Simulated scan of single mutants.
Amino acid sequence: MATALNGKLVTVFGGSGFLGRHIIRALALRGYRVRAAVRRPENAEHLQPLGVVGQIMPVQANIRNRDSVANAMRGADAVINLVGILHQSGKQTFDAVQAEGAENVAAVCAELGVSRVVHLSAIGADEKSSSMYARTKAAGENAFKKHCPEAIIFRPSIVFGPEDDFFNRFGAMARIAPALPLVGGGKTKFQPVFVGDVAEAVARAVDGEAVPGTTYELGGPEVRTFKECLQILLKVIRRRRPLVNLPFKMARFQARFMQLLPNPPLTVDQVELLKADNVVSQQAQDEGRTLQGLGIAAHTIEAILPSYVDKFMPHGQYDARRPLED
């Protein structure tokens, strides 16, 4: 816990999410005051114990509304935009959130003269992609480059850690399903990055340790295929489950129906994303636009995964000495 505040205020849009809470903790430890700008402040009260009394304050803001964005940003020394969605629902569309919403945040940063700006994007952001998620991520990046040329953009690969949407989802599936699906044969390559390492990178950018106007690509120390990720998970949670190939065409067909569910396990857009590898580019490595370039030693999946997936073991965290489940 920070012992003294440094007097600087950081507004974090989307601070109540999985990545947001880790970033806010990292900022609080450095002594920053944090304004967590979220759509429903009553659902962000869990953030306040991450700092000393009065250090972290949830405020209402909807990035689709430029006035609320401006109100949340007034007086801030730095701004971080983390808002993103994995699937569309109602007014929360990819265009509205990741393109138009990012445009609002970037434009207001420019209007208010905020000099230190960080935007979270994703590896695979591409305006020519067949995935709407990837196209709107690219549009968000372009908005910040246009309005805030000095903005620092972070593109992480798949992010893992407590409350993640990948290992937790498949761990829960392994408890009840007789097999796990390998979309596209499980050949898609990821470079899983620990949420704490991403949070440290963002905090260092706020500290001024990242190069302004640079796009960083954040990946862990190892490249793993989709299949290898599931194999590691099954080993850690001590379950035997066959991994069944699900061709892209079949996955797309099933996703058309799954995406109608409130919290869909798979969408058509996600199937499109899985057709491309999600790893740090060679150019980013050569130019030092990585975690290593920021002086951060990335954590491996094996070092972190056992700390939060024990609930998926057949007998919970006390399974270490038991044989593998059949």
Results as ranks from 00 to 15, higher is better:
A61S: 10
A203S: 07
F154W: 04
Q292E: 15
Q317K: 14
I304C: 03
K311I: 15
I296K: 12
K189D: 03
G161R: 03
A143W: 02
I153Q: 06
R74P: 01
Y32W: 04
V183W: 05
V236M: 11
I158C: 07
R169E: 06
Q282Y: 08
V12I: 11
G196C: 08
E45T: 14
D277T: 08
N263E: 11
R116G: 01
G20C: 09
Q317A: 14
E302H: 04
L29R: 15
G31Q: 03
N71I: 04
E217Y: 02
A151R: 01
F194E: 07
V193D: 12
R30Y: 01
F167K: 03
S130V: 14
R35W: 07
A134V: 00
V59L: 10
G15D: 09
S157Y: 03
N6D: 01
L233N: 06
V10G: 01
G140E: 01
I80D: 02
V105Q: 00
A303Y: 01
V108K: 09
F144I: 06
A110D: 08
H119E: 03
Y32A: 02
F248L: 05
L230N: 04
T215N: 00
Y133G: 02
G288V: 11
H147Q: 04
V117H: 07
S130F: 10
G213Q: 07
G185D: 00
A251D: 07
D67H: 14
P49A: 02
G184I: 06
L27N: 01
G7I: 15
D326S: 13
F94P: 00
